[in-house]
Write a protein that binds this DNA or RNA. Sequence first.
DNA 1: TATTTTATTTAGATTTGTCTAAAATTTTAA
DNA 2: TTAAAATTTTAGACAAATCTAAATAAAATA
Lengths: 222, 222
Amino acid sequence: MFTETEENYLKAIYKIAQKQGESSVNTKAIADEMGTSSASVTDMIKRLSEKKLLQYEKYYGVSLSKDGQKVALNLLRKHRLWEVFLHDSLGFSWDEVHDVAEQLEHVQSDLLVDKLDQFLGFPKFDPHGDPIPNANGSFTFRNQMPLSQVRIKNSKVYILGVRQHDSSFLKYLNDLKIRPGQTFEVIQFIEYDKSIKLLSKEGDQIMLSEKIADAIFVKSNN
Amino acid sequence: MFTETEENYLKAIYKIAQKQGESSVNTKAIADEMGTSSASVTDMIKRLSEKKLLQYEKYYGVSLSKDGQKVALNLLRKHRLWEVFLHDSLGFSWDEVHDVAEQLEHVQSDLLVDKLDQFLGFPKFDPHGDPIPNANGSFTFRNQMPLSQVRIKNSKVYILGVRQHDSSFLKYLNDLKIRPGQTFEVIQFIEYDKSIKLLSKEGDQIMLSEKIADAIFVKSNN
DNA sequence: TATTTTATTTAGATTTGTCTAAAATTTTAA
DNA sequence: TTAAAATTTTAGACAAATCTAAATAAAATA
């Protein structure tokens, strides 16, 4: 249907729009996300615009059309289902799944996606806690807040997911045994630098900077 | 490492060499296998030759180098492991697995292949009965003969695999409940046209032409 | 508002993989 | 052994995706 590169552009545009909370995305942002030049992005944008996958106004960025969103969401669905497979079935750690899923998401077969979804038991979230769109493209939402906002002592926090997905960040958390599904107690909040101290079930104390705590999503009993 | 197309050429050359029982493969055969023109094949051959993946003598065809064979065998290994996954884990029928595996085999991750192999229990044969090379590239061999050569009445035959993999042929066999692992009894052999009549465990009689019988590999008690 | 900085587009070139048509070579058959 | 047929290669062109450098437009700033 579409080339792998076209798909990746659509996904990048979707991601940026999501992150900035606005549908209009500029050329530079796409170039940065794709690791390519602005000139290349302009070329590709024109092609995707001709194929009605996005609206493009010269010098004023692009926004995905209904069709473009559909492609991006389907890609996201496949990516996250494969991550669940790699993590739950094959035993990959959560910092290893992304790069491989990046390749697997481009395999074209609706039957495969359906059967994989079924095999995995129709999971609603991936190993990073991100929601998996269903076949119609709709997510399950849930209440979550950055750990950095939990500032009340003795709060119990349940790890739901993370804001960033780069391997080094995930490895850091993994070493601290912080991963989705784990529970901690907030035992200290330092006003001065907004850092936070957690207590694990095993009795370990973990100190997190505001920056780290802000990238962790939790459910809290407060 | 190599492009998907380069990998596919190497696989095609390996397959042809295997089938004809001779390592030297000519341009036309590759063009037919790849569904492309001879001119394109010549172009690609030159590139692969420069990369030391095959020996090429103008007008006299090519043969894979050690490195080229390694790539082809690894591809075959990945293809067949994915076929086992699609069939055994996801419930694909054996005529549905090939096209999807054709895409999956190009995913680059040694860790993935190892983990998949382990997850599947280190299978030695794929759903068509073809041997799966191990990580070193060596197969498990087994005694097998074309069903067409079993000409003695009351022979028990155990289906091991097939010579061809096109979807329509596999569907035909599937409808007759002929698939690897099944057992039949030879109840008639017609000298005139070399056709053969089988009896299934369920009591069904199945008539097969010589052409069909020749494409089915069996273990026989004779 | 004028100038500088940043972002975007255009123009022209490159690589990969493909094609068709024509030329060259090898094989087959008379 | 020579002519015809088949195969292989070369030449030239094209589409996709990329690049750099130059030109243009928009945004930021003084």
